[in-house]
Amino acid sequence: MNVAATAPQGFLSPTGVEIAFVLVGLVTLGAAVVTVTTRQLVHAALWLVVALGGLAVEYLLLTAEFIAWVQVLIYVGSIVVLLLFGLMLTRAPIGRSPDADSGNRPVAVAVALAAAAALVWVVVDAFRTQWIDLDQPQGTTDVTGSILFRHWVLPFEALSVLLLAALVGAIVLSRRNATRGTGSPDAGSPDAGSPDAGSRGTGPRGTGSRGADDKEQR
């Protein structure tokens, strides 16, 4: 607000940081578009890595370095791996799948374009004259750790409880219900299928707990 309104920058003389931000932003946006439009499901997850890594570079350019490394660790390291595990466990087809998009694709295009037009117009109109002053870094690990454990320690602890609840919930959801097989007419086949399903259930559970533990240690 008061920082920047007097800065003598202009659109026609972009700084090096701005040029880098726009270029990385184009790569990120292109990767995101490919992620939501490709027909090969595994390629969508791999393009998501490009998009999330590009966002980490944007955080670095905005001098929020701790957020950038957390983004790399959590998103690229654990969430994309979880998504790939999910794709493999649901036997997603390798190669082009013709039914990746549902029938309401034109409606989705219309809604997304309308939202993009409205939001871009509003945002550009609102922040046309505002500048970010990047001369001193705002998100070093020192600063982030200090504010996180000095001012935000109670939400941080509540968040660890939430992660524990999510972990327990994921285990309960992916665990086979033993009482359901007795009620069905052919009680033998669920028992025969249970070791397979049990071993398949341990994949996301194990990686999920590892990702949660990473963040608990953080």
């Binding site: 995101a32 549902s102 809604v111 550009v124």
Partner: peptide, 30 residues
């Protein structure tokens, strides 16, 4: 840096995600 750059990039990423949520059929892609 102009504030409009990150704001517009965030808006466009959000709309790309909105399109994906509405148009995708596989739950993992959603």
């Amino acid at each position: 840096m102009h504030l409009a750059y990150p704001a517009v990039l965030a808006v466009l990423l959000f709309c790309v995600g909105l399109y994906g949520v509405l148009a995708r059929r596989n739950a993992i892609l959603v």
